[in-house]
Amino acid sequence: MRETAGKLNRGWLTIIGILALLLGVVGILLASGAAAGIASATGTGFEPAGPGETALPENAQSIFAPPVAAVILSVVAVVVGLLALAWLLAQLPKLHQAGTFRLNSGDNADGMTSCEPDVLSDAVEADVEQLDGVQAASALLRGSASQPDLTLDVGIDPRADVRAVIEQIHSSVVPDFETAVGVPLSRNAVLINVSNRPARDKAAVV
């Protein structure tokens, strides 16, 4: 029911992996002395450091000497930190719930009818929880008023008849919802979770 940032993670992990791999290859080439051979064979004119020398030129530290370098580095650090924080926040699962349902039969000249998706999903949950054997239900609405998409997560008693519950959802709960919104569901998914504890009622309806 929840969507995670799988695509974003795969993308950034691929980029970070490629960078780490390139740095590793460069390190191995410099440490083994193969980098000098490759540079001379390709004729780039660049002389890489040998295995006994430091990888960076001796005067490399001088680029950090000006005061502005500290400011630039601080800004870069803040940007990288914000990107890292945004990536971390992107890990929070998203429901992608539908927006407010506009239930107008004609034009909007006479006024608008609106209904929050939470109101509809609460009604569906209450409907499902009335079914025999159902302990709890959670409904998530996606799409729009003209093309609603309903996902149901139903917790049932271990002794309940799963097939009967699903049949009742399709024969009673879904038609009730479609009657209310006035359009057929574009997609309906039902997830059944069987509880490991049987329900105990304090009273019986005969």
């Binding site: 239930l103 039969s105 009818t113 009604a123 409907d127 919802f177 006035g182």
Partner: peptide, 14 residues
């Protein structure tokens, strides 16, 4: 009241 047709019911109310 659920389940009543929301469009028809609210049009009637309007």
């Amino acid at each position: 009241r659920y389940p009543t047709p929301l469009r028809t019911t609210t049009d009637d109310l309007r």
